[in-house]
Structures are given as structure tokens and as C-alpha cells.
Amino acid sequence: MIAESIVNISAAVISASTPLLFVAAGELVVERSGVLNLGVEGMMLMGAVAGFAVTLTTGSPILGIVAAAAAGAVMALAFAVLTLTLMANQVATGLALTIFGIGLSALLGSGFVGQPVPALPKLHLAGLSELPVIGPVLFGQDALVYLSVILTGGVAWFLKRTRPGMMLRAIGESAASAHSLGLPVIRVRYLATLFGGAAAGLGGAFLSLSYTPMWMEGMTSGRGWIALALVVFGSWRPWRVLAGAYLFGGVTILQLHAQGAFHLPAQVFSMAPYLATIAVLTIISAGPWRGRFNAPADLGKPFRPSV
């Protein structure tokens, strides 16, 4: 009985964490290249609606997932053209992307509200999935859950171990120096931004295809913004971001369970993820470790090569 509820709760935590992990891992790469894209909420919603609509009309969840990533990337492309080519303010453009994405996803999805879509199938790994407790928790999830962890590992490996990853970090720390060394600042930032958009799209698709398999206007309810905070919380390091995402998934599930246990209005518990975000940001910025976890030095600063 207890083992069963541990299994259920752990599986739910992993499920609640996965969209955050996708989005935060993507945004981490974007920010490491020196670009601050605040439009994640909009990209996520577009991914959610595109993934849902394509899965429903074609019947293929794989096509849906690809469409979600593409939709996120297209939104990110608009952001990149504005901020990297047309030198628009990154904060303002990110806000515009969010407002636009909320509106456009609601418009495109208005015909899909209330329709059901089969949830992504859980992968069954022979042998492993039958293990007691950890079997269903670790090896009974759907493909996107594994993909989110693989993506995080891939990002960690890319940034730390590969030459392009090092280039990307150099560009994020000082675009001017990187440029004078001959590194393609704008091209790398474009690619990083597109990657971030695709990852945000996947996070959205997980919401509309697996977490709550349906489409609802504004269904991300601030998860994109929480993911932005997670990048800060994880001090721009992939594995710490993963830990942060699971912590927040835990808070989300915990408050759902607490709602039944205490005689307080449900809204009190729904506030938890948002308040936790503020608390965590404050602790990270205020503690004795402050200053050791610095943002990329050129984060959010526009750069235009003079030649």
C-alpha cells in the first residue's frame, strides 16, 4: 500500500517535472550564448497546440512531437530575427513573443478545446519495468520523459566537452572578444535560440499529449516563467537545472496531495509553486554562495558586429 503510493507519487513528480526540464534545458543553452529569451511561455503554448493538433489530425504522436518542436523553433526564429538582426530590446521582444504566443495558440486551438487525444504510450522495457517500485517509476514512463533527461545530458556534454559548446560559452561571456577571435557570434546565437525554442515546444507538447492529454487555452499557467527561474536556480548548469526541475515537480505534486489533507481553500496550495519560485530565487541570490553562480557576463546584451 505504502509502496504503491510512493510509486504513484514519484511517477507523478517525474511527470510534472518533465515539461519544466525541457524548457529550462533549452533556455539554458540560449542564455549561455548570451541571449535572454523571455518568450518561453509563448513558445511552449505554441508547441502544446501544434503537438495536440497534429497528433489529433494525423493520429501520429511522433508527427505531433516533431510539429511541436518546429512550432517552438519558428517562434524562436521570430525572436532571433528581431533581437539578433534587427537589434530590438530582448526583454521587450520576449514579452511580445509571450503575448503573441498566448493569443495565437488560443486562436489556432479554439477548435480543439475539449477534444480528447490518446495519451502517449508508456514505454515498456522488458525486465526493467517489472522491477518492484523503481520499475514503474523509472522505467514505466513515456518516451518524452526519457528524452528530457537525455536532452539534459546532451546539453551538459555539449557545453562542457565539445568545441562548438566552448564557442557558445565564450560568446555568452564576451561577444566582442569572441567576435575578434573570429567566432560567428550571430550564427551561434541564432542556432542556440532556435534550439531553445524547439525544446520549449517539446515541453509544451508534453503538457498537451502526456501530462493532461488535451488542449486548453493558456494551459502552461506560468510554467514557462518558472522554467526561466529554474535556469537561474540551476546557476546555468544542466544537472543543477535538472535537480531544480524535479524539486519543482515535487512541490507541484505535494501541494495537490496537501489539498486533500488540510481544510484550507485549494487556492492556498496552488500558490505554492509560484511562491516557491520567488523563495528559491531569493535564496540563490542572497545566500553566502552569492557571486559564485554568476550569469553569463553578456546575458541580454545586444551585439552587432561592426564589419
Partner: peptide, 26 residues
């Protein structure tokens, strides 16, 4: 017309404005 069209219109307007600002600086 779905109600969400208002949001799309508003978002597009801000997008285009930020893009057009390029002309005032370059």
C-alpha cells in the same frame, strides 16, 4: 472570430513595432 484574435492582434503590433524601431537607429 475567436476571442483570442484580440491577443494575436496586440502581440503582432508589439512585434512589428520593435522590428520597425530598427529604422530609427539604423
Amino acid at each position: 472570430l475567436p476571442q483570442a484574435a484580440t491577443g494575436v492582434f496586440q502581440g503582432m503590433l508589439l512585434f512589428y513595432l520593435l522590428a520597425c524601431d530598427f529604422l530609427s537607429r539604423y
